[in-house]
Design a protein around this nucleic acid. Structure first.
Lengths: 246, 246
DNA sequence: CGCTCCGTTGAGGCTCATCAAATTCTGTGG
DNA sequence: CCACAGAATTTGATGAGCCTCAACGGAGCG
């Protein structure tokens, strides 16, 4: 694979071979590049926004704050993800985008997206597919939050993080550094950090995981996936029908 | 408005004026039409599916069953909605589509979508926008499930249902028939039907709503919306930048 | 060296689930 | 039109799961 000129083109290529023209058009989204520090906000909920981003390096999250002060993390964002589309279609962004580590992002104007969609319809179709994958991942989390116990929620988060980290770093198998505080895990799973702590401990005691200073090892991945109804939504796709070979 | 040849074209027209060619292409999705009875399943989770639908009349839902037997309702579906896209991009559908009332649906093959996307890029862009609106509605629900009390969850569901019913029936203001059992409300909000019952009663006692055999009246909509952080995601859109007038 | 952030642990209380049963509503066939 | 069966709603009692509050230890950093 190596360092491609475009992270996002690499993601799209997983689903369909791009023509040269398509690849060039996609690469234009990543012409500019910006380094941001951990904690930086790229977009703020309830504020106007006209920029979007491709995340090139690092870990980010999107979240909302409710007015009792509690936070719900909606999604973790990984290299190759396109960020901020919901923000630019509304007059006020529905969510906040925040860097969880130092990151590299490529900002682009919404007009760049508009051009890309109208001039490269196949790319538009692939972006729609990505949007649907994200949708399904969100509905999975909805079911987890609505219908499962704290222990299962934490386990499901670990599985999802592992799988998403894998797409960036193919070396990862069952051991990885999470890069999240227990409070962040709690805000993603609808729990308090205190209870997350107890659940991690319990998962460890019951032999599902092992922990050594920030590093997590899944020791019984199959059992974890079974209790959490977990499915990796970046696999099992069938897109042959969508884009005729040309 | 009147009876247009295409429900879906009417939805798209809310966001951008369609050309004649675009409208015709969209109308092709609704060439066939099928009446289905309450309880009919159009698509089953974990089974292959190659068909999609436009819902023309009635109320449907999508849900998943966890293997402890509990059900999470993911989304309620209203006339003008496109159904089943997540189902056709995966080899096995991620969710079940079920009719909550007698419905009229227009089935179409996935190749019809493929053609539409490649031949009418602006329509593709609009479908992407619809997909993003749905995404934001889902993240709103994620925050509700993760971070709010049972009472707020039920209140938020009432508000959302009212707003979605409004787009079909412009007469509705603050009073409407919900068309859901308390068990269904529970499965959508992550509660038991017993607790939904108590919350409805409490909302009534506290003057937020009134109920008369299946009909709900929102008597203090503003307060309800405030406590639930509710935003109607079909409003507040800004799409002028997306599709150049032609 | 002190400060802050994060993880850890304990005690107690509230919210919501569970179980059970009575009552009302709905629809269907006689 | 009525009788009946099944579904949906309502209510109560009990307890589990998770939150809240509080305190302490350790790691990183100025």
């Amino acid at each position: 694979m190596g360092k491609s000129a475009s992270c996002f083109a690499d993601v799209l290529s997983e689903f369909a071979k791009l023509t040269d023209a398509e690849r060039q058009a996609v690469e234009r989204l990543e012409e500019r590049q910006r380094e941001i520090r951990r904690g930086t906000l790229l977009q703020c909920a309830n504020e106007p926004s006209s920029e979007m981003f491709i995340l090139r390096k690092g870990l980010m999250m999107s979240y909302v704050l409710l007015d009792d002060g509690s936070r719900q993390i909606l999604r973790f964002l990984f290299p190759g993800d396109m960020l901020g589309l919901p923000g630019v279609i509304y007059t006020e962004a529905p969510e906040t985008l925040c860097a969880l580590s130092d990151c590299t992002v490529c900002p682009f104007d919404r007009s760049a997206l508009s051009e890309l969609l109208t001039e490269q319809p196949r790319v538009g179709a692939l972006i729609l597919i990505l949007s649907q994958i994200e949708r399904v991942a969100l509905t999975d989390r909805l079911a987890i939050l609505g219908r499962t116990s704290a222990k299962v929620r934490v386990g499901a988060l670990l599985l999802e993080m592992r799988d998403r980290l894998c797409t960036t770093d193919k070396n990862i198998t069952d051991s990885f550094t999470l890069g999240l505080t227990q409070e962040e895990i709690g805000d993603a799973t609808g729990l308090t950090s205190v209870h997350v702590n107890r659940m991690l401990r319990q998962l460890e005691e019951e032999g599902f995981i092992r922990r050594e200073n920030g590093r997590v090892t899944l020791t019984d991945e199959a059992a974890l996936a079974r209790t959490a109804n977990y499915v990796n939504r970046y696999q099992g796709l069938q897109l042959g029908w969508l884009l005729p070979a040309r």
